[in-house]
Write a protein that binds this DNA or RNA. Structure first.
Lengths: 148, 148
DNA sequence: CTAGATGCAAACTTTTTGCCAGCCA
DNA sequence: TGGCTGGCAAAAAGTTTGCATCTAG
């Protein structure tokens, strides 16, 4: 949070209460919230907060490289304020949870293929869809119940 | 095209001229078109074609697993009718071109990490952003011109 | 024939923009 | 004080839906 605040100042942006609240909220969660979710979360403490402000702030932070933006078609765009660099995501198709994968995902074949095509890689987005451990168990018991 | 047509019939869908045209257009291009692009492409040959029909057909094909849908926030959703299975994409940030990468992108570490978390992988989306070979060259000459 | 598809327009969702008042530096 | 910001409402962009008409099978 400190670091983002400093960076905002350094770039000539004002450190308003709203911006600070959004930065804090992003830093406190692992849950990759959407703009709407953030807005609802902040509304109790900032009754005058508007969705437009959330969007504007998120866009500012993204341009600063402080958050990573993840677009989905199901539901809306989600934001990751803790890992602004490229990394892989595990996305549960049942509960919508997004977990981060910390290891380098690239196979050496893939790196080779990219290089062979002369492509200059800047960043990537790697989303893995499937079932998280919890939903597999829930699904299994649901199936069993249905079978009776 | 044949195969998709058969599959449509088998599932009890009608093989309308509009559907056929969309399937053909998708099969003929490597360029991952958007719904809008497809619509404009087909309009000359099907003056009555409507955007809604394109969307409906694309959704049908997606549900059949015959096209892969790629959502982006810049511009719109794009469709891949030639490689309906998961694979990596090289996306040029300058010209917007999307190339397919055919090799398996996963590192063994990544597979290990996913397994360790108990995640059951169904499909993935791997988008690599950067500059394609052509745009790197254009960029280089543009820079040189600017330097003079 | 007739269930299912098309085409039009209107609805919907998500995100962005214009504008003025207000506040931070 | 003076320009950046926040908040509101309205616009924009992309996609979906309702419904009357039409058509493939």
């Amino acid at each position: 949070v400190e670091q983002v605040a400093r960076e905002l100042r350094r770039r000539g942006f004002r450190l308003t209460p709203q911006r600070l609240a959004i930065v804090r909220a992003l830093a406190m969660t692992d849950s990759h919230p959407s703009a709407e979710t953030l807005y609802e979360e902040l509304l109790p403490s900032f009754p005058t907060m508007s969705l437009a402000t959330v969007y504007k702030t998120l866009n500012t932070l993204r341009e600063m490289g402080q958050v990573m933006q993840l677009e989905f078609k199901e539901g809306s765009t989600r934001y990751d304020g803790r890992h602004p660099d490229s990394h892989a995501h595990l996305i549960c198709s049942a509960c919508g949870r997004i977990q981060d994968v910390e290891v380098d995902p690239f196979s050496s074949e893939a790196r080779g293929a990219i290089q062979a095509l002369g492509f200059q890689l800047a960043r990537y987005r790697f989303d893995l869809y499937g079932l998280c451990q919890g939903c597999q168990q829930k699904g299994a018991s649901a199936t069993m119940k249905a079978a009776r």
